[in-house]
Amino acid sequence: MTVVTATSLDEALDALAGDPSAQLLAGGTDFMVEVSFAHRRPASIVTLRRVDELKGWWRDGDTLVLGAGMTYTELQAEPFLDVVPGLAQAARTVGSPQIRNAGTIGGNIATGSPAGDTLPVLVALDAVIVLQSAADGERRVPWNEFFLGPKRTARRGDELVTAVRVPVVHGRQEYLKVGTRNAMVISVAGVALVMDDDAHTVRVGLGSVGPVPLRAPAAEAFADSTIDWATMTIPDGGAAQFGALVSAAASPIDDQRSTAAYRRHAVGVCARRALQRCLS
């Protein structure tokens, strides 16, 4: 096994160009579990923790650019609590403090697990994933072209996820998660809700209820047209109907953590509650 400890973006990209099959290692919170269970024994590893270009964040007009190396601990605090509160809430539900110190948003994106906690928020925000390679430089891929299946993404072997771009949206955001216990748990169902008070739209992202993180277009359209945006209220039964439409958008499976039926039910309940919270 060879290990390249990259200390700059160029070093990391050069290493990947030379060996596109290399395993990337940032926080290790997904990969090391697979090593532990002997599911994977890669021949080469490129580590990213010392790549400073992946750290930090900046504003690009109305867009927030989050470096792939940002940890959940960073994301759960200010200024993100104000700017992207849904993402901060999602980051806070990940693992334990130690896991949140290690795990990164880039890792969450690049691993592409349908249970990744930040993914419902990113898809609700219509995030754009920034990839870079030595050969082609930077390319930007919308989330719905990036996530292809369970742990399958559009990232080429010679590419690195360097950042994720999300719009700064004016309005309330919620992330609700159901797990088999109250913390340190993989999501059974996750719902992110983003209200855009200027555009008068509601966007919903769903986790753990499909092969990739999903949106619920019918539910969104229903909410957009049913909410009274002047008073920020919804008629009686509207939130429940919204939840039912979200349930209908899910395509979950049975596994050891839960059943498809419960997951479908749970995302509907969480979506209803998220909407009620945003309107309260």
Binding site: D254, D255, Q256, T259, A261, Y262, H265
Partner: peptide, 22 residues
């Protein structure tokens, strides 16, 4: 478990555990 208290959803019965696909 949750499944024991949600009657409209399939219940868990001891001895007939949910499938373990992962």
């Amino acid at each position: 478990r949750i499944e024991d208290l949600l009657h409209e959803l399939p219940a868990t019965t001891p001895g007939a555990l949910p499938s373990m696909s992962e």
